[in-house]
């Protein structure tokens, strides 16, 4: 069932697809970031796909991996109508970490995208309220990046006077 969903999206956006696989039973589509909004919108609106849920949006940092962009934004979609799932991974380059927002497709991705920005420093173009969510506003850097030292301490910065 869900392989069909994977094939359908891959066929429709053939020029955008970098790779696809179904390892461990999870259908995965790796795409370029340029048309991510159209892809996600298609996933939600198409009758045979009907992904009503965007269960999760998270970031990935592939630092030091050759031949691929450093960051990824990973979407986990679920359709309650057809009971199938799809994972979409969009590659985001290090020198321009920006991707289109999906808040206007699923309002629930608002906070998830804020978290990706907070943790990885990937910006979401068109996001209505892109603030940090778990860290405090004055925090320097993005802690889940692979080059952020695990033992680094930052003094809490008080209100500015």
């Amino acid at each position: 069932m869900s392989v069909k969903a994977l094939e359908k999206v891959a066929k429709k956006f053939a020029s955008e697809v970098i790779d696809k696989h179904s390892n461990a039973g999870d259908d995965t589509l790796i795409v370029k970031r340029a048309k991510i909004k159209e892809i996600l919108k298609f996933c939600r609106d198409d009758k045979e796909l009907k992904f009503e849920f965007c269960m999760d949006v998270c970031g990935m940092d592939y630092l030091g991996y050759p031949n691929q962009d450093r960051f990824e934004v990973v979407y986990h979609l679920y359709s309650v109508t057809h009971n199938h799932r799809l994972r979409i991974r969009a590659r985001v380059p290090e020198n321009d970490p920006v991707i289109d927002t999906s808040v206007d497709i699923w309002p629930g991705t608002n906070w998830f995208e804020r978290e990706v920005w907070d943790m990885y420093g990937v910006k979401f173009k068109g996001h209505p309220d892109l603030r940090r969510i778990l860290m405090y506003e004055e925090f320097q850097g993005h802690p889940l990046r692979k080059d952020y030292p695990v033992n680094k301490r930052q003094p809490l910065i008080g209100p500015q006077n």
Binding site: N23, A24, T28, D56, H76
Partner: peptide, 20 residues
């Protein structure tokens, strides 16, 4: 090597673990 997303019904809803 690999990636997987597993989901269980937690007390509050879908508790998902995406492990790479």
């Amino acid at each position: 090597k690999g990636e997987a997303y597993s989901y269980v019904e937690g007390g509050n809803g879908e508790l998902g673990f995406y492990v790479v």
